[in-house]
Design a protein around this nucleic acid. Sequence first.
DNA 1: GAGTCCGCATGACATCTGTCATGCGGACTC
DNA 2: GAGTCCGCATGACAGATGTCATGCGGACTC
Lengths: 201, 201
Amino acid sequence: MIRVLLADDEHLIRGALASLLALEDDITVVAEAGSGDEALAMGRAHRPDVAVLDLRMPGRDGVSVAARLREEVPECASMIVTSHAGAGALKQALAAGVRGFVPKTVSARRLAEIIRTVHTDGRYVDHELAADAIAAGESPLTPREAEMLSLAEDGAPVAEIASRAALSPGTVRNYLSAAAAKLGAENRHVAARIARERGWL
Amino acid sequence: MIRVLLADDEHLIRGALASLLALEDDITVVAEAGSGDEALAMGRAHRPDVAVLDLRMPGRDGVSVAARLREEVPECASMIVTSHAGAGALKQALAAGVRGFVPKTVSARRLAEIIRTVHTDGRYVDHELAADAIAAGESPLTPREAEMLSLAEDGAPVAEIASRAALSPGTVRNYLSAAAAKLGAENRHVAARIARERGWL
DNA sequence: GAGTCCGCATGACATCTGTCATGCGGACTC
DNA sequence: GAGTCCGCATGACAGATGTCATGCGGACTC
């Protein structure tokens, strides 16, 4: 019997998933959580075999929960279920030791299969998302360029970015300009968006 | 018996909802759709009593489907179910004649209740979202300012916006500057984000 | 060890962007 | 009808932004 922890802030979906998984003979939902922190606490308390985590949750996102669970409950395999994910989230998830990454467009039957796969030390990544990640490729940005872009993400003026990074304004402009050129963007704002979409931040 | 159309691109959730609603004695799911266009076709074919529409769907979003259904199947009440919605979507939905607006954080039982409410000519809007919408208030932007902001949304340079709007670059800058001042933003990029969040675009 | 490449960092310069003062015309009040 | 207000539209100016040429130092090749 596979003991599953279910974490999703959307009550509707969490309940629905629980009742669907209950139909499977070899799967039991031993705990449910509505936030990242709650998921972590439930994981510690129940030590489930598989943690099914939503990516977007209040407090602490699914990837972060997975990373902590890996340390604190090493026998528990984590998998991410998400609504509208980009390739970026997938990369971060795999880096955090997540063993499954699935969009919510799959069917319930398929989800159950994937839970079994993940439980028996297997891995599963949605084909389309994997293709996106491969298409995005490796980041052409240098560490500093990526750092400047992430600071520029919220639209702050260059002066503020410079002071936060303890750099000359000219230097900051230079990195942002280089990043925009590499990404084919017209300015730092679109460059930041592109980099975020491709998981390069 | 209330005949329901269910539209959500996330197969997992759609199936889960269908099986949960099937548990209610007075509700039948007569059709399911995985995209906006499919939802419209199903609505025309089955003429359901209530259409439960996801906001974000490929092809045509829930609000747009609701608007068309209102014309073509007037006896059908539409309601929107959404993951992470802002106040903006709510406004547009109400303008399109939607009778219910619910986040997916509600429970299945509550969803069934709301379907009944909507079916008997009632209305239901999530309290928290309503509060957000009221807090956002009416747009302080003039029509032209809003238009410029929406053109500026994707980060295009002012020159391009000016040519698209057939205006002098100086004029465009002026509107954007005024909009940013009204919104308390430091530049047009953050101004566009704020306006979008509050449903003023 | 010399040569080469690449990332980090900076300042000067040209361009783009935001702010301001100004004018025009429609709507509304009195 | 005069006065006032507000939205639309523009150009001039100052300040912010992006581009370029330059230099430094570590890593890697030969």
